[in-house]
């Protein structure tokens, strides 16, 4: 099955992105595909390469980047939501790209299921 994933909350404050990541991993392990992961609202904060969590904590941003690198997952950050929150090409983590909301609607159309992680 082809999944779309939407992440609506930022890292560390909220579990949404952790759950989304674990869901994405499980999806791939079961042999399904991920059409796209779309980051919206404070979820765009998952895409900053400036994050530096303590050594003994998970690195939420790097984890997404690694998933993108290993599995060719399309990680898309909403441009309007990103600019509001100071996320731009200059501080974008590897594997993410900035684009428009149409990418979310398209994921809803193309994927068999769109799974939303948020508040």
């Amino acid at each position: 099955m082809k999944f779309g994933i939407m992440v609506n909350e930022g890292p560390y404050t909220h579990q949404a992105t952790d759950s989304a990541y674990q869901f994405a991993k499980a999806t791939l392990e079961k042999g399904h595909q991920i059409y796209r992961v779309f980051f919206y609202h404070d979820g765009v904060n998952n895409a900053t390469r400036l994050t530096e969590p303590p050594q003994d904590d998970r690195n939420v941003v790097a984890r997404w980047s690694k998933l993108a690198e290993e599995h060719g997952i399309d990680l898309v950050v909403c441009v309007a939501a990103a600019l509001r929150r100071g996320i731009c090409d200059e501080n974008l983590a590897p594997g993410f790209r900035i684009s428009g909301l149409g990418q979310l609607v398209e994921a809803g159309i193309q994927a068999d299921r769109l799974v939303v992680f948020g508040d």
Binding site: G100, Q103, Q110
Partner: peptide, 21 residues
């Protein structure tokens, strides 16, 4: 980038009509 559709070209996603709520 196409401003209206937010980065999607008009011919993409063509034909499929889904119920969005």
């Amino acid at each position: 980038m196409n401003e209206t559709t937010g980065g999607i070209e008009d011919d993409e996603g063509s034909g499929i009509v889904k119920k969005f709520m």
